[in-house]
């Protein structure tokens, strides 16, 4: 896959936000590249900057945010485009699925109106053709054909149905890349499985590349080709999800994996990471994981660069090598 030109290439992406009058870094020096048809996972705990990364990539960070670095979509630099042009390019090239199926669809526009707006505007389809295509898309994501969902409103749909509509909207303009921000977190377990299955099927069917955001390494291990683990705005490890799970190299990844309760070890103790995630604006100097890290020493006061460890990229002075978790 690496010989193909990447769909998305991100270099040194940093995002800062104005928080009580000063600019606070939220994401720092994040790089990734996604090849056609590849699924990359962005994994980390709440507040580590996953959604912010995604929103920076589609050019929609919160107001006042400062974004630096390079973002290329199919070789085209997005950060230097005019806002208008950028939105047009992003709208066609990247589909987006949000975490919150409850609030991510417009409450008073019908599903049909929302779907056809994008089709008409991005693909210049006449209204009738756009409606037919929207109907097709809804059937394709497994929504019942009998129901006239084009004229339905969000409040008439269940959470799983809403997320299917979101998926239909995300793939409606034939994007090469879909970014899914925790698309199943808000759903029930059996519905989660349905939606995940659908995403995996869609990806195979249209050869979509995907950036899948999740806080659960085990979920992404099932279908992602690569995983990027984030901690406090930093990319700490990147490798195959199985490698991250079975042989984590960064002490944080190791801690994360050990904290997941597992079958068979019942009634034993879990191994939580001591302490808590530093709050925004008070990240420690040097390695951000250092105050909670069992392998911490003097060197950790300077920030480590990403370096190759076995088959992964790791940002750590003392990576774990060959210690099976």
């Amino acid at each position: 896959m690496t010989d193909q030109a990447p769909i998305l290439e991100v270099r040194d992406l940093s995002v800062s936000l104005p928080i009580s009058g000063r600019m606070v870094p939220v994401v720092t020096d994040l790089s990734m590249s996604i090849s056609p048809g590849e699924a990359v996972a962005l994994v980390g705990e709440s507040g580590c900057g996953k959604s912010m990364t995604a929103r920076a990539i589609i050019g929609l960070p919160p107001p006042g945010a400062v974004v630096s670095g390079s973002i290329r979509l199919e070789g085209r630099e997005l950060t230097t485009l005019s806002p208008r042009e950028r939105r047009r390019v992003g709208g066609r090239g990247i589909g987006f699925i949000f975490q919150e199926p409850m609030t991510s669809l417009h409450p008073t526009l019908s599903i049909g109106q929302q779907m056809t707006d994008a089709l008409r505007y991005n693909l210049n389809l006449p209204t009738r053709v756009a409606r037919d295509r929207a109907r097709e898309l809804l059937a394709r994501v497994g929504l019942p054909k009998e129901r006239d969902l084009l004229n339905a409103y969000v409040h008439e749909l269940s959470g799983g149905m809403r997320q299917r509509v979101m998926i239909a909207m995300a793939i409606s303009c034939n994007p090469k890349l879909v970014i899914a921000d925790e698309p199943t977190t808000a759903l029930d377990v059996t519905i989660q499985a349905q939606v995940l299955e659908l995403l995996i099927a869609m990806r195979a069917e249209i050869g979509l590349a995907m950036l899948y955001i999740s806080h659960d390494l085990e979920v992404v291990a099932e279908f992602c080709d690569r995983a990027i683990v984030m901690y406090a705005g930093d990319q700490v490890e990147a490798g195959t999800p199985v490698e991250c799970l079975k042989m984590p190299h960064h002490p944080y990844t190791r801690g994360l994996v050990d904290a997941i309760p597992h079958a068979g070890e019942a009634r034993a103790r879990l191994s939580p990471i001591p302490g808590q995630v530093p709050s925004l604006g008070s990240w420690p100097r040097g390695c951000r994981f250092q105050p909670r890290c069992p392998r911490q020493d003097d060197r950790c006061a300077t920030r480590p660069e990403l370096a190759t460890v076995v088959r992964s990229e790791v940002r750590c002075w003392h990576p774990l090598v060959g210690e099976v978790s």
């Binding site: 929103r55 589609i58 939105r87 047009r88 987006f96 417009h106 505007y121 991005n122 303009c173």
Partner: peptide, 15 residues
């Protein structure tokens, strides 16, 4: 969030 959705779909700001 639904405004972000509309923007992410590439719809122009006026719309």
């Amino acid at each position: 969030p639904y405004i972000v959705t509309a923007r992410a779909q590439g719809l122009p700001e006026a719309m």
